[in-house]
Simulated assay, not measured.
Amino acid sequence: MSWINRVRNAIPFIAKKETADTLWHKCPGCGQMVFTKEWEENQSVCPKCDHHGRIGPADRFRQIFDEGSFRLLPTPQVREDPLKFRDTKKYADRIKAARAATGDHDALITAFGTLNKVPVVIGVQNFAYMGGSMGVAVGAAFVQGVQEAITHKCPYVIFTAAGGARMQEGILSLMQMPRATVAIRKLHDAGLPYIVVLTDPTTGGVTASYAMLGDVQIAEPNALIGFAGQRVIENTIREKLPEGFQRAEYLLAHGMIDMVVHRRDLRETLGQVIDYLCHKRAA
């Protein structure tokens, strides 16, 4: 960068111009360039190939809840870095970097609000936060969401997006699997619906626990859903896996999920499912 550009950029009253990086978004699905504004107005779905981009809790809450109806649940306080873990970086430094990049306290954020004027608790995993990995904080947030749903006698909806358990917390991360399972049982004992929306990607220990225990299993189009990776499975069984294996449409065809729903229709579909389940259980 020349000294003229450095001086110009340092002057506070000169407005920053939009650049190609801010005007355009490259679709991960088809590789086409899409206007960023068009991408955002289309709920982060490519208008050319229908690829569903990954979105975080803020966008998801805005799309699903009634406008202005929701409040974030307070962040559960847990012990951070219980193992004092370090790989190429300190775990504590990775947490700080993830919080700075996403603005979220951890990978699962929960909120209480209304959907079509019906009370509902929604949890959203953010893949941008350390791959949406499941640690003690995620387990605590999940249980908190269940308890809030029981308190308000309303459904609990979870949007999953994860690479699995968080290795930096060792066995403590794996303990969140049975912990979440017990919480779901309490929700069922209270006669309340538990709905799972599987987004890209949902893998590992999350798939092996609360992601596959919903009363209704919904997935976004072409979402990657599975436990182990395709290459690991192929190397284990010495077989070539079918085309589209572990994608939402393949799982729907083989009975593992109930429906695949486009993002533009997700709010309406959830409203219908919640209305049906709540009326059925009340009856």
Rank of each mutant, 00 (worst) to 15 (best):
P221R: 04
V121W: 01
D93Q: 12
R185Y: 04
E239C: 12
A101V: 04
F227P: 03
I109H: 02
T110S: 13
A58E: 13
R54A: 14
V124S: 01
R231F: 04
K280H: 15
A15V: 09
C154Q: 12
A101N: 04
C154T: 13
G226I: 05
T236A: 13
T110I: 07
R54L: 14
V260Q: 08
D104E: 04
P47G: 13
H279P: 01
V260H: 08
A128W: 15
D66K: 06
V124A: 02
G132W: 00
E18C: 15
G163H: 08
L241E: 03
T207G: 13
I274M: 11
T36H: 15
A219Y: 10
P76Y: 02
V120Y: 11
V157H: 03
P47T: 07
E249V: 08
H51G: 06
S44A: 13
E40I: 13
Q217R: 15
Y156T: 04
F13A: 10
P201G: 00
P119V: 00
A253E: 11
H262M: 12
A20S: 10
A161I: 02
Y129S: 07
L277E: 09
T75H: 03
F61Q: 04
K16P: 08
F142E: 09
T22P: 07
R6D: 07
I184C: 06
V34K: 12
K84V: 09
Y129E: 05
Q147S: 11
I233E: 02
A190W: 01
T207L: 15
C46E: 00
R8K: 02
M256L: 14
D93T: 08
L73D: 01
I109G: 02
P201Q: 05
G139K: 00
C27E: 01
L252R: 05
R231M: 09
L266H: 07
N126Q: 12
R6W: 09
Y210S: 14
A98W: 12
T75Y: 03
F61R: 05
G31R: 05
Q168W: 08
T36G: 14
A190F: 03
E148L: 14
V34I: 14
L270W: 05
P242S: 03
G170N: 12
I233K: 01
E67N: 02
D275S: 12
V136K: 08
A183D: 05
A183V: 10
L174T: 09
L187Q: 06
Y210I: 13
V136A: 10
F65C: 08
A92D: 11
N235H: 12
N235S: 07
V157Y: 03
A15F: 11
P221D: 06
G31S: 06
V260R: 06
D106C: 11
V206M: 10
T151Y: 13
I218E: 12
A283E: 04
I257K: 11
I64P: 01
L198G: 11
V273C: 01
G191N: 02
I55H: 11
V124L: 04
L198S: 15
R264G: 06
K26N: 09
A223L: 11
